[in-house]
């Protein structure tokens, strides 16, 4: 058992400072345990979002020593404890209080994505889908909406591009676009509304994903290839215009 120093960003509406708290570290402890300990012992009103504490709900996203992570899945023994542990809120989102930020933007973006429009059921009232047809999108359904990818992506974080849905929602669109039952073509809005062309494949979303979803390789790049095929491939465009004329 040892003591270590935490420096936590405290304040409201982006004005604040790093405050130091001493934490008693025990075996197997995660950063969220330390936060809860600080709440109970030193700072009752320290604001933080968390729910399941098992890496399944994606609520306790923060930046631990500068790295975007889930606090409940960051073990203390993987951090250097000789120096203070710095906990800051996600910087991409408007600040509310202490470690809590306003993530409502993400819910607004999700609202703009057209929901699944399935084809009709089979005659026996079921849907038939083979495992091999859904395993690709099952990976995307692992997303716990922690919004760490939305936070870290430089297109919004540094470059402040507004017309860009962000990695979480490319995952979501990919899960619809590759859905064996879906009947909508989503490529035009992907290019024009959700701004997939802004992604320059620097893969920070994949790097921070606590669910280890290969966001870039399995969702964004395949979507970019589909968009390329639909809008930028000169031969494909020529072929399509020829075949549509002959009809």
């Amino acid at each position: 058992m040892s003591e270590t120093l935490f420096k936590i960003f405290r304040g409201e509406r982006a004005k604040g400072e790093l405050c130091g708290y001493s934490v008693e570290v025990t075996e197997g402890m995660v950063v969220l345990d330390a936060i809860n300990q600080i709440q109970a012992r030193h700072a009752n009103d320290l604001a933080v979002r968390w729910n399941c504490k098992a890496g399944k709900c994606g609520s306790c996203s923060a930046e631990v020593n500068g790295k975007p992570r889930l606090m409940c899945m960051t073990r203390m023994d993987e951090l250097p404890l000789d120096k203070p542990v710095i906990i800051e809120p996600m910087r991409r989102f408007p600040h509310i209080k202490d470690l809590v930020t306003d993530v409502s933007l993400n819910y607004e973006i999700n609202q703009q994505i057209r929901p699944l429009k399935p084809k009709p059921r089979e005659a026996d009232g079921t849907y038939r889908m083979q495992q091999k047809d859904i395993e690709r999108i099952q990976e995307f359904h692992k997303c716990i909406e922690c919004f760490l990818c939305q936070n870290v992506c430089h297109v919004t974080r540094d470059q402040q591009v507004q017309e860009f849905a962000g990695p979480r929602f490319f995952i979501r669109i990919a899960s619809l676009a590759m859905h064996p039952l879906d009947t909508l073509n989503r490529l035009k809005e992907l290019k024009d509304v959700f701004g997939i062309g802004y992604c320059n494949i620097t893969k920070c979303c994949t790097e921070v994903c606590p669910e280890d979803i290969a966001i870039t390789d399995n969702a964004i790049i395949p979507l970019k290839e589909r968009v390329a095929g639909a809008f930028y491939d000169p031969l494909a465009l020529l072929w399509r215009s020829l075949t549509s004329v002959s009809k």
Binding site: P115, P118, R121, Q130, L176, H179
Partner: peptide
């Protein structure tokens, strides 16, 4: 399923 859920499948789909 109509709303997008993807359960694991049997061989018959």
């Amino acid at each position: 399923e109509e709303w997008g859920a993807l359960f694991d499948r049997t061989k018959e789909g």
